[in-house]
C-alpha cells in the first residue's frame, strides 16, 4: 500500500526533525534539572534535601495532596454519576461550570480566594473575629488547590460513563441491589482505570500548583512554602543547586506520573486487542 510521506527521504527528514526538536525542547530541560541539582555532588544534594525548610515544604506539599485528592475524588465521582445517569434541567450548565478552573489563570484563582477569605474580604471579618486563619496558612493553600484541580477526575469519568450507558446498573436495580452495592460491584470495576488516571493527574497538579498557591501562601519560610514555592524562593536567593534539588523531587514525580499514564494506556490497549 502506498501512503503519503512514505518515501525514505521524507520519512528520515521528518523523524529527524521531530527527534531533534523534542530533544531540544523537552529532553534537555529534563536533563538540566537533575544536572543542576547534582552539580556540586551527591553529598551536597543530600544536605540540601535534609534542609529544615525543604523538609517542611515536602511535608506541607504532602498534606495538600492528601487532602485535595480524596475531596476531588468524592466530588468527581458524584458529579460524573449525576450528569451521566440522570437528565435534569441545568445539566449542561453544571458541566460547563466545572470547566471554569481550566479557563482561569491560576493567579486569578488565587485572587478570588483572597478576595473572599482575606482580611478585607467578605468572610474575612468574621474569620478574624473567630481567630480562624485561612489565607496565608495551609487551609487557604488546600482550598485554591481544590479549586484548580477539581475538573480533572470528573473530566476523565464523564465521557467514559456516558459511553458505557446505565444498562448494567439498571439491571442491578431490578435485582434489588442497593445504591452503594451497584456502585461498588457494577460501576467501579468499569471505571477503575479512568478513575486512577484522574487521581494521578489531580495529584500531579496538586503537588505542582504554583500561581494560585503563591497568591494565598504569603511565602512564610518553613510554614506556608510548598515545594514549588520553595523552588522559587531558593532560586531568588541565588541558591541554584538548592532550588534544583527541590525541583528534582518534583521532576521525579512528573516522571512517575508519565510512567503511570503510559502503563495505564498500555494495559487498556492490551485489553482492547484481547477482546
Amino acid at each position: 500500500m502506498v501512503r503519503i510521506g512514505d518515501a525514505p527521504g521524507v520519512r528520515r527528514l521528518l523523524i529527524g526533525t521531530a527527534l531533534a526538536l523534542s530533544a531540544l525542547f523537552l529532553l534537555l530541560p529534563l536533563v538540566a534539572i537533575f544536572a543542576q541539582a547534582l552539580m556540586s555532588g551527591l553529598d551536597v544534594y543530600w544536605q540540601n534535601l535534609r534542609d529544615e525548610y525543604t523538609l517542611a515544604a515536602i511535608g506541607l506539599t504532602l498534606l495538600v495532596a492528601l487532602l485535595t485528592v480524596p475531596i476531588n475524588l468524592i466530588f468527581g465521582v458524584f458529579l460524573a454519576w449525576l450528569v451521566t445517569r440522570f437528565d435534569f434541567p441545568g445539566r449542561r450548565l453544571l458541566q460547563t461550570l466545572i470547566d471554569i478552573p481550566f479557563a482561569v489563570s491560576p493567579v486569578v484563582a488565587g485572587l478570588v480566594y483572597l478576595l473572599l477569605y482575606g482580611r478585607n474580604g467578605w468572610l474575612g471579618g468574621w474569620l478574624d473575629a473567630h481567630d480562624i486563619q485561612i489565607m496565608f496558612a495551609w487551609p487557604g493553600i488546600v482550598l485554591v488547590t481544590i479549586f484548580v484541580t477539581c475538573p480533572f477526575i470528573a473530566r476523565e469519568l464523564i465521557p467514559l460513563m456516558q459511553a458505557q450507558g446505565s444498562r448494567e446498573e439498571e439491571a442491578a436495580v431490578t435485582l434489588g441491589a442497593s445504591g452503594w452495592t451497584i456502585f461498588r460491584r457494577v460501576t467501579l470495576p468499569k471505571i477503575r482505570h479512568a478513575l486512577l488516571y484522574g487521581v494521578i493527574l489531580t495529584n500531579a497538579r496538586a503537588v505542582g500548583e504554583f500561581g494560585a498557591v503563591s497568591v494565598v501562601a504569603g511565602a512564610i519560610r518553613g510554614e506556608t512554602n510548598t515545594l514549588p514555592l520553595q523552588v522559587e524562593q531558593l532560586y531568588q536567593d541565588y541558591n541554584t543547586v538548592g532550588a534544583f534539588t527541590s525541583a528534582s523531587l518534583l521532576a521525579l514525580l512528573a516522571l512517575l506520573t508519565l510512567a503511570a499514564k503510559a502503563a495505564l494506556e498500555w494495559r487498556a490497549a492490551r485489553r482492547e486487542t484481547a477482546t
Partner: peptide, 9 residues
C-alpha cells in the same frame, strides 16, 4: 506533568 515553576527556573 512537570510543575510550571520547575519549568520556569
Amino acid at each position: 506533568a512537570l510543575p510550571t515553576a520547575v519549568a520556569g527556573v
